[in-house]
């Protein structure tokens, strides 16, 4: 753990836009170093300062390639961009292949772009509990757009919808059957839908299917919504449709602001972050107290799980 004065300096440097400092702060936060709490206290002051765009969808849909395109779009407007790309950890080895950066290397040396790959580290689904803290570091760094990439379909432990302001759901023409069978969860979390690989055959049918599926959801008795999720055909490979996608992302951000929904979403994000914090703490403390002695006491009938559990939770 770094000394207190070093932490202050680290925070100051992050806030000045220093990438080396941000990289170090991210490691401390993600690794749950003892200093993480003091860092988080400061960085949280910046919470809500950026538009967080969650890019999710099935493996290989082109999320990273598209992320690269979005970076290019924002950089043409001189907007500082942060990217957090999450891949699953192997449950066997605990290791991970973090392969998203591979598709974004074109922006590697741009001082206005900061990219960090993260492993899910034991969490079910696409995201890591550390994602919230990592987002705040990038907000403090001054990123006005933060792209969070994850394989996610709406049934995960940490949901992209509880992290992002704007959820961009990426699918492709080749995944036509997947669209048909798309879970209600996925249909509901998307704010903007992309049919990527529009350079391939079947693009118009995929767009129509998706629009149909989204419309059907409404016809089934839901009230009309203030925001109708658009479907945009894009080729992340050629860049076709990326401008139009950028306009939809901006429109959604403006909609959130105008409707007051932005605050509601931020509230939802904070709730998720708080709940995860508590969950982690309980996991690390009370669960760690389940030892041989506890089990012996249960076996001998000296106590019962509910009484013992309550006692372990109280213990400091």
């Amino acid at each position: 753990m770094p000394a207190k004065s070093d932490l202050k300096d680290l925070i100051r440097r992050v806030r000045r836009g220093d990438h080396a400092a941000a990289a170090r702060a991210l490691s401390l936060v993600v690794d749950e170093d003892e200093s993480a709490a003091s860092l988080a206290r400061d960085f949280f002051k910046s919470a809500g300062s950026a538009q967080k765009v969650g890019v999710c969808g099935p493996p290989g849909a082109g999320k990273s390639t598209l992320t690269g395109r979005l970076i290019g779009l924002y950089r043409a407007r001189k907007i500082p961009v942060g990217v957090l790309a999450v891949d699953p950890s192997s449950s066997l080895s605990g290791g991970a292949f973090l392969g998203d950066r591979l598709r974004i290397m074109a922006h590697a040396t741009d001082p206005g772009v900061f990219i960090r790959s993260l492993a899910s580290r034991g969490m079910v689904g696409g995201l890591t509990h550390a994602i919230f803290g990592a987002v705040h570091v990038l907000e403090a760094l001054g990123c006005a757009k933060i792209i969070v990439e994850t394989v996610g379909t709406g049934q995960d432990e940490v949901e992209i919808a509880s992290v992002a302001d704007t959820v961009l759901y990426v699918t492709t023409p080749a995944l036509g059957d997947e669209i048909q069978a798309m879970k209600a969860g996925a249909m509901e979390i998307g704010d903007v839908f992309v049919v990527n690989k529009a350079d391939l055959a079947g693009r118009d049918k995929a767009v129509a299917d998706l629009r149909g599926a989204l419309g059907l959801g409404r016809a089934a008795g839901q009230a009309p919504r203030a925001w109708e999720p658009p479907v945009v055909a894009v080729s992340a490979l050629s860049g076709e449709g990326v401008e139009a996608l950028g306009r939809e992302l901006d429109a959604h951000w403006a909609h959130l602001e105008r409707s007051g929904e932005r605050r509601e979403r931020l509230k939802r994000q904070h709730r998720a972050e708080l709940e995860f914090w508590i969950q982690r703490r309980v996991l690390k403390t009370a669960l760690g107290r389940v030892d041989e002695k506890a089990l012996k006491d249960l076996l001998s009938g000296k106590t019962d799980p509910a009484s013992l559990g309550a006692k372990l939770l109280r213990k400091h």
């Binding site: 950890s89 192997s90 066997l92 080895s93 605990g94 290791g95 991970a96 292949f97 973090l98 392969g99 950066r101 591979l102 598709r103 290397m105 590697a108 040396t109 790959s117 492993a119």
Partner: peptide, 16 residues
């Protein structure tokens, strides 16, 4: 390296 428990980031070919 992944199978040995490391988190591995790969940059791809032809990097400066």
């Amino acid at each position: 390296l992944r199978d040995a428990g490391f988190e591995v980031i790969y940059t791809g070919i032809r990097q400066t």
